[in-house]
Computed example of a mutant assay.
Amino acid sequence: MPQQQDAMSLLNALPPQRARAELLRCCTCNRWADEVLRHMPFSSESQARNTLDACWAAMGPQEWLEAFSAHPRIGAGGGDHKKPSGWEAEEQKGAATAGQQVLQGLREWNRKYDDKFGFVFLICATGKSADEMLAALRARYHHHASTEMAVAAEEHRKITQIRFTKLLAGLQDGQVSRL
């Protein structure tokens, strides 16, 4: 029986175009994906995770906005904005079971936030309830624009790390995205 390869070996063995596509599932920023790819192959998962973070830290507002734009609004529904699917739906499952009042609050505050800052509200939603997300949205609305951009970038970094975990698990299970 052949020995199963570890996820890092599988990631390192992907052709560059496929590896880039997989990285873009974690963070939809072209420059970031290209930078991470430039550092491959990785000797360990720890090195890979440090590289993801270092490459994200080297990005600026233009790249952050590119990545932010791929995210659906928390609690999006109807014609409000694109609905979450795949990993996003799993990440936002705390909003999926929210009552109508909380969902309405999320829709209203998302619009206010977007009008003020010009980008979608980002929060690492994994494990958070809709009430927690709404409270964070309301609190962060009062930030200065530059502060909020930095907070959103940090939340995106957390999301990217969680998605990288999912990517590695998917590679281990033989599941990769289709180009």
Score class of each variant (00 low, 15 high):
Gln4Gly: 04
Gln5Phe: 03
Ser9Asp: 14
Leu11Lys: 08
Ala13His: 00
Leu14Gln: 04
Leu14Ala: 00
Pro15Asn: 04
Pro15Thr: 06
Ala19His: 04
Arg20Tyr: 08
Glu22Asp: 07
Leu24Thr: 06
Leu24Phe: 10
Cys26Ala: 15
Cys27Phe: 06
Asn30Gln: 15
Arg31Thr: 15
Arg31Leu: 14
Arg31Asn: 11
Trp32Ala: 13
Asp34Leu: 09
Leu37Met: 14
Met40Asp: 01
Pro41Glu: 14
Phe42Thr: 06
Ser43Leu: 09
Glu45Cys: 03
Ser46Trp: 02
Asp53Phe: 04
Met59Arg: 14
Gly60Lys: 05
Pro61Asn: 13
Leu65Ser: 03
His71Lys: 04
Arg73Glu: 14
Ala76Asp: 10
Gly79Met: 05
Lys82Leu: 02
Pro84Ala: 14
Ser85Gln: 14
Gly86Met: 13
Trp87Thr: 10
Glu88Asn: 07
Glu90Gly: 11
Glu90Asp: 15
Lys93Tyr: 04
Lys93Asp: 12
Lys93Ala: 09
Ala96Met: 07
Ala98Arg: 05
Gln101Asn: 06
Gly105Gln: 04
Leu106Phe: 08
Asp115Pro: 00
Phe119Thr: 06
Phe121Ile: 02
Ile123Asn: 01
Ala125Asp: 00
Ala125Trp: 00
Thr126Ile: 07
Ser129Pro: 11
Met133Phe: 05
Leu134Asp: 11
Ala135His: 10
Ala135Phe: 02
Leu137Ala: 02
Arg138Glu: 15
Ser146Thr: 12
Ala153Gly: 03
Arg157Ile: 00
Thr160Lys: 01
Thr160Ser: 13
Lys166Pro: 01
Gln172Gly: 06
Val176Phe: 03
Ser177Ile: 03
Arg178Trp: 07
Leu179Arg: 15
